[in-house]
Design a protein around this nucleic acid. Sequence first.
DNA 1: ACCTGAACACCGTTCAAGT
DNA 2: ACCTGAACACCGTTCAAGT
Lengths: 225, 225
Amino acid sequence: MTPRTRRRTEALSRDRIVEAAVELLDAGGEAGLTFRTLTERLETGAGAIYWHVANKDELLAAATDGVVAAALAVGSPGSPPDEIRAVALGLFEAIEQHPWLATQLALQFSRSPSGSVTPRIFEAIGRRVRSLGVPAGHRFTTTSALVSYILGAAGQNAANAQSAAHANRAEFLDAVSDAWEELDAREYPFMREIAAEQRGHDDREQFLAGVDLVLAGITAVHRAG
Amino acid sequence: MTPRTRRRTEALSRDRIVEAAVELLDAGGEAGLTFRTLTERLETGAGAIYWHVANKDELLAAATDGVVAAALAVGSPGSPPDEIRAVALGLFEAIEQHPWLATQLALQFSRSPSGSVTPRIFEAIGRRVRSLGVPAGHRFTTTSALVSYILGAAGQNAANAQSAAHANRAEFLDAVSDAWEELDAREYPFMREIAAEQRGHDDREQFLAGVDLVLAGITAVHRAG
DNA sequence: ACCTGAACACCGTTCAAGT
DNA sequence: ACCTGAACACCGTTCAAGT
């Protein structure tokens, strides 16, 4: 009835639409963003949104790009490995705060490598890979490996982020551990062995340990770092 | 009118439904799998499918699990690093043949780490990580890093796989390279630098180079391998 | 130029009814 | 126990009509 956060007289714009989309995605995940919920929140009609945005895919791409750009904007000067860790952690935290981002990043990367998200992340990592001393012919492959790890790991952590926000994180990890321990002993000996290790692990520590592992590999292969 | 591949008298079963789902996904991507297209192909009603499968999410999970299980079944004994490369390549090729798998794997991992796909992949990689000589307290983290890389890289290659199937692969790479070369010179110096490198790269080679990079990191950190 | 809102084609899911 | 198929609530998108 009575709008609280916005005056209905405020003009519609692409930025306001994307902003509202991010809020809806944060609140309700991908299912929370609908042209119905969006028109309701913006107090407008469906056609008005289509005037500013081509379709839902473009809207999701714009929301993803905005969040990623903000996450990469934090620039803390340091050694190349430290900067790579900072960039990686920035993306990790962005996905922690916006769990829907993990799936969207995967979609952006696989569907349109010439979009805006792929270049942004590649550029942020790639510059530091160059500073690391990786020779010219190997920079694309090396950067790609780092980006692959970061996105893969961040995607795996999206679930944990959601569970941490809603319920008790310890309960979530316990449930996963319990499920792993109940797996068939002959088919899944390794899973049963690491179930305990999983139970108490820290996502962020594990993520950064993986970054360090890849960095150690780069050093070993290229004697750079 | 006249069914060709199946006799309509053949009984419905969960396996037949999942099999048909995979075929539809392969042919038309995620948009190609619909309860309408599925009932049409199976010459049945919607309710019949719901008798065997709880909902669409479960159907997608079953389709993903089936393809992954088949991909991991190829066991070629060798040194631990060789076996890791073989497992990774098996998943890479499965995604190459079933591009929809990349997104589904990301969803399975982030939504239900206690499902069947996560344990399968973790077990296949983790056993070899143990054989590699990684000490007990580090196996979960190390395996997780490898799996993250594999899934992240495979996801990035899903687009290439699709373009390779339909149009000319060289044309696709050229288009991406061209887009990268047209980026702003001040904001994207690195992307412009590696555009040429991207143009002629081989996905499989690059993927395996990344696996070797992570393996080199594991060796460097744990003196194992 | 920008917005309204009814209408369209389609989706996943349910369920009373059949065999 | 297994299947049918109409019906329901919802979705993204379009478009004639307004200002």
